[in-house]
Design a binder for these strands. Structure first.
Lengths: 346, 346
DNA sequence: CTGAAAGCGCTTACAG
DNA sequence: CTGAAAGCGCTTACAG
């Protein structure tokens, strides 16, 4: 019982050094593939380390060298598959470059962005990736810039904070979606966008407005407060119910993202409207399940995984010392036309 | 330019000590609320630390004390909202107890479970949470037990590894679902389960089989290899297409989880079968979007968030030194009956 | 009530 | 080619 292998008896470099009959410095040199070690000693050390099941203590290493190969990724709503896909892109690219990802969730159920960032900084992470910024976060980001901590903004951008950003041209996406809706022949169209303090949400709504206007259509809820709102299913449901109650002649409701659109679909069902016969519904994002058989939601296909992948690539370059001017990378998108907006007469 | 505030100039306890005119030990004592400091000195130190924007270096602290308030959570498929909900439960409970969560994704796109666990151990995390174990992982878990690293198994269990587990009685869930399907009047029923090396998947299929058998119904694909498979949408689609091609008289297909069921729905759509008129479809998990208006999938409602919350609670107790016998916590579940299995004659 | 000193497990100039 | 020593930023007995 006394020979129990507890966590305190973990093998360290000192253990390896002792067994191999060399100094700790040589163990470190061998493990880090530095030059100046005779091949024999090197392989002996490696063999001993392996035999003992040695694993480097990341805490000690990072404390010593003052750098970390772990990056922080903050995500607002883990339950939104859009962010799951984006995270996969980040994680995959990180793995390819031997980086790890510390994923933190921001939201009512978890911590505020400030708390998350504090946690990231307390761990001295090498760099940060943000998915859902608002202009209110500008100060936080500027603090990071002062401390020379590299970060990349994904999807949403923040005014006045010049830094790498990856996303799509949400405005043009909105225009394309608006044009598509107009082409289906619907004239009475409402839009239930995301929060107005998200630059992406605002651009999407602006684009949708313009795409429709080019075809002589004005949003019926243009000056109503429901034009913007929380990007949740519940909010989409509530706002859609409200619209449908007041005006049953609506021919189409566009959600600022797919999750909102799901809420709109819920409301249509509860109100007994069938899609697309009675009413058309569209979203934005193309989250995984939007293409599910019965859902079949028309949406703007945002390259979610690629945004994560390129964002991570940008971040790695910054951590590796790249010091060029901030980049803004617009990725191509598509309008995924599905049956939720099929022409009425079909 | 030379006064740039770089990461090297971060304020440490030494900085605070100097400014406050005390020793580093006193700063540490003040920050950790240990007794024996005069209230005046204590509050002065705290004020100085605050003014300087001091933040404790977690790496140094954890290295020194040999314990960590961060736990590791391994998730197979981030894109499956089931795990997103479960993760939210873990994260929320962790936050309430001042713990952090290091979320890692296991899968073809990312790392193997062994790599993930190695990463967790290299960081000397305080405890681990596993979501998707198979019996092949038994050895890995036993290694953790030898090192006295606390962990909790979620959803799936592993034979031969006695440790805390939280989930539902998947077998009974299957029985209840099978009985429901039988009650809808369908007789020709197939089941496309998850992987056979997942104890949860196996139990679900066993339960479904028994629930149907009690009503005189046998699975039509009982001895076919497609009874088990990958728990992905693609696999559900492929296997369902195969079934539908061979036998168009099938009245119901049950998926081993909701993601598989989505694939089944995709296949039904492509084959021109309408749900539930031509064919009924059911799943298992009740992931968020299964209730979406047009999807409206019948499924077993697994308390996803609660599994995460209670699992985290168990883990905290272990990290706090609780040394009682391993617990097995079965949470209550429900069958969420929706229109995808509505009776044919309606 | 407060401080000097050792040490957690590493890495890195610097001697030899 | 190899090792002794200092130090990353903390915490914790132990003196005073």
């Amino acid at each position: 019982m006394t020979s129990e292998v507890g966590p305190t008896s973990r093998v360290t470099m000192a253990t390896v050094a002792e067994v191999a009959g060399v100094s700790v410095a040589s163990v470190s040199n061998a493990l880090n593939e530095r030059v100046g070690l005779s091949p024999e000693v090197r392989s002996r050390i490696l063999a001993v380390a392996d035999g003992l099941g040695y694993r480097r203590n990341t805490l000690a290493q990072e404390l010593r060298i003052g750098r970390s190969r772990t990056v922080g990724l903050s995500v607002v709503d883990l339950a939104n598959p859009f962010y799951a896909d984006l995270s996969q892109g980040v994680i995959k690219t990180a793995g390819e470059h031997a980086y790890d990802v510390f994923l933190s969730s921001v939201g009512p159920e978890s911590e505020s962005l400030k708390e998350v960032v504090d946690g990231f900084m307390d761990r001295r992470l090498g760099g940060l990736l943000f998915t859902s910024l608002t202009n209110a976060d500008a100060e936080l980001l500027r603090r990071l810039q002062k401390l020379a901590i590299p970060f990349v903004k994904l999807v949403r951008d923040v005014q006045g904070v010049v830094a790498d950003w990856v996303g799509i041209d949400d405005y043009s996406g909105g225009v394309a979606l608006g044009e598509h809706i107009a082409a289906t022949g619907r004239k009475t169209v409402a839009c239930l966008g995301g929060p107005s303090d998200s630059n992406a949400s605002a651009s999407r709504v602006n684009g949708i407005r313009v795409g429709l206007a080019r075809n002589g259509i004005n949003l019926i809820n243009e000056s109503q407060p429901n034009l913007h709102g929380t990007p949740t299913r519940m909010s989409g449901y509530d706002r859609a119910m409200n619209l449908l109650q007041k005006d049953s002649s609506i021919e189409c409701i566009i959600g600022g993202n797919d999750v909102i659109a799901i809420g709109i679909l819920d409301a249509c069902k509860d109100k007994g409207f069938s899609v697309p016969e009675d009413i058309a519904v569209a979203g934005f994002d193309n989250m995984t399940f939007s293409s599910a058989g019965p859902l079949d939601l028309t949406t703007v296909d945002v390259p979610r995984e690629q945004i994560g992948a390129i964002g991570m690539k940008f971040l790695i370059e910054r951590m590796d010392g790249f010091n060029g001017p901030p980049r803004r990378k617009f990725l191509p998108f598509d309008v995924a036309i599905r049956s939720s907006t099929s022409p009425k007469n079909v």
